[in-house]
Nucleic acid binder design. Structure first.
Lengths: 337, 337
DNA sequence: GTGAAAGCGCTAACAT
DNA sequence: ATGTTAGCGCTTTCAC
């Protein structure tokens, strides 16, 4: 069962196959009558042009590579959704090259992606890579490249990120403004820039109120509910005086709220809580979780815009785009005290 | 900045480019010394074979198409993650062809996918399509095709699904076994086979205990927390006697639990609740949610296995594979009454 | 063991 | 307006 090719169409109509090419590419120089017959034959034979053959000659694959690490992560999943839609609107497709659970394989996927002639690569994963030489190699080769929330030391990259300093500050201010002075912090894992940024925002908000930044009020988790739960337990142990908590993502906030309930602390009366992300369940937690909403899909969309821009104009200046967050006040943060 | 081709390598070494081809394809007939020099040149020049050119001549793209509808859906996201890993292990890549929010565009993406010479297509989306003619066309053309949880009337498909009848029965039995006789049901949206199946399981479990199946205990949602919340409110209105609830996914269960709390019903003392999916937050709800765990990643993995099987052997018999669910008992379902 | 020739399906110049 | 020639980067005969 051979595929129908341009030549089959041509001989069926009785013209040269180049004429068929003209028709499918909507070129002007072809008689209306001929065009009609060609179109008819295309339909009859069920002809579909081969994108591969086209790519070979045009040297444009209209394909983008996507490197991701974790499909369970709500943030990146949404980024990918936004990116996918944006790419499709512009006539591009994504090839999936995830490296879930095996960051050490990433260089391999990147190579496979470039072998497939992707015109650019989007890195939609956190900055937890050890080996970055393959990325530097890409940069040297001039492969268009955009990352989301991922920076590379000593290299200028085009990255789309969320203003996490501001976000962390918004979250914390929501608490300080209610009069809280002992505000616990549950950080995300080491090595994430967003963690450092949100922490800095936390610090700025405290400073503004003249509250000391104290390590004793800080614990860390790995973004999971369970880690938030455990961090909160430790925090309750070492800093029982806290009256508020900023958890750097909603999942940890939810785990922390469970620990608080188990410890008999009421939310928000005894301990006010603010999360980060605004995942769908946040509004239905007990109590509904105040949080910071991030424009995740927008991140993906902008990333694709910049990637296509870089493809069009490879020597364009690399730049960093920061998107704003929004504070969503629900019940867990309490009112004014 | 031209790409380095096989010919560049050849002339650099001083051999014909066919010899280089032999080396990169690990063919035997090449002198060890020549091979070494070629390999050396490949490294020096940074040569990468063009997968596109290779595909053109070999007529194998080693690419699979992925049709999906919603990256926010935990189930399908996990299926995709499992599928992606399985595909990569077998040397295949996925091209993303989602049709999020625009099911009417699906035929277009399918066409674009086949133009890209995908060797097979995985449909990882629910069965809510109106227009199915493009899928029937694919079937007629003999394009290898596997779906997850999607059936097509009047066509024999290879589909990987979860045994939702059994799952619904497990969920409901967990409630009947505790002595509940007035068990409410919050269904997912119309048109989903999983909804019908879970409902049938609910019915079977009731039958087994000699409990009447009553429409008055049933409400429907759209899978979201909010819809579960509203459905529960309606249910409380029309069937205040219920002492238990089976919500067909966790997100609706979480919404329902909020409605129950607001109505002053304790969980599980007044109303026991069981969900479906075992999403990550389920264990950290208030109270922790009993639920049915589905082997989502396994679904993706098996789907890819079957797809590659169909590619190898196009006339292989189509078949349906049903994976088992697992009841996860936490607090929301209560103990024995 | 290696090279020459042909061709995968298509586009793009150049003829006519 | 249409056909001819060449070539994209590679694999695969078939010679030598």
């Amino acid at each position: 069962m051979r595929r129908v090719t341009i030549k089959d169409v041509a001989s069926h109509v009785g013209v040269s196959y180049q004429t068929v090419s003209r028709v499918i590419n909507d070129r002007p120089d072809v008689a209306p009558e001929t065009r009609k017959r060609v179109l008819q034959a295309i339909k009859e034979l069920g002809y579909q042009p081969s994108a591969i053959a086209r790519s070979l000659v045009s040297r444009r694959s209209h394909t983008l590579g996507l490197i991701t690490a974790d499909f369970s992560d709500y943030f990146f999943t949404q980024v990918i959704a936004g990116a996918e839609i944006a790419a499709r609107e512009r006539g591009y497709f994504f090839i999936l090259g995830s490296s879930e659970r095996k960051p050490e394989d990433e260089p391999v996927y990147v190579r496979l992606l470039t072998e497939r002639q992707v015109e650019g690569i989007l890195f939609a994963r956190p900055s937890t890579e050890k080996d970055t030489s393959h990325i530097r190699a890409l940069l040297r080769q001039g492969v268009p490249l955009v990352t989301t929330v991922y920076y590379l030391e000593g290299e200028k990259l085009t990255v789309v990120d969320v203003d996490n300093v501001d976000g962390g500050q918004q979250a914390t201010e929501c608490l300080t403004k209610s009069g809280h002075r002992h505000i616990g912090l549950i950080k995300g894992p080491e090595g994430w820039k967003s963690v450092d940024d949100r922490t800095q925002g936390y610090r700025l908000a405290l400073d503004r109120e003249g509250i000391d930044f104290r390590e004793g009020l800080i614990e860390g988790g790995d973004w999971s509910e369970e880690s938030g739960y455990k961090a909160m337990k430790r925090l309750l142990q070492k800093a029982p005086q806290i009256t508020a908590l900023f958890a750097q993502n909603d999942r940890m906030a939810i785990g922390a709220m469970r620990a608080l309930r188990e410890a008999g602390r009421r939310i928000p009366e005894d301990v006010a809580v603010v999360g980060y992300d605004d995942i769908p369940v946040a509004a239905y937690c007990e109590p509904p979780l105040s949080t910071i909403r991030q424009p995740m899909r927008e991140v993906g969309r902008v990333a694709v815009d910049l990637l296509l821009e870089a493809i069009e104009n490879p020597q364009a200046e690399k730049r960093e785009v920061l998107l704003k967050t929004e504070l969503i006040v629900r019940e867990s943060s309490g009112g004014r005290r």
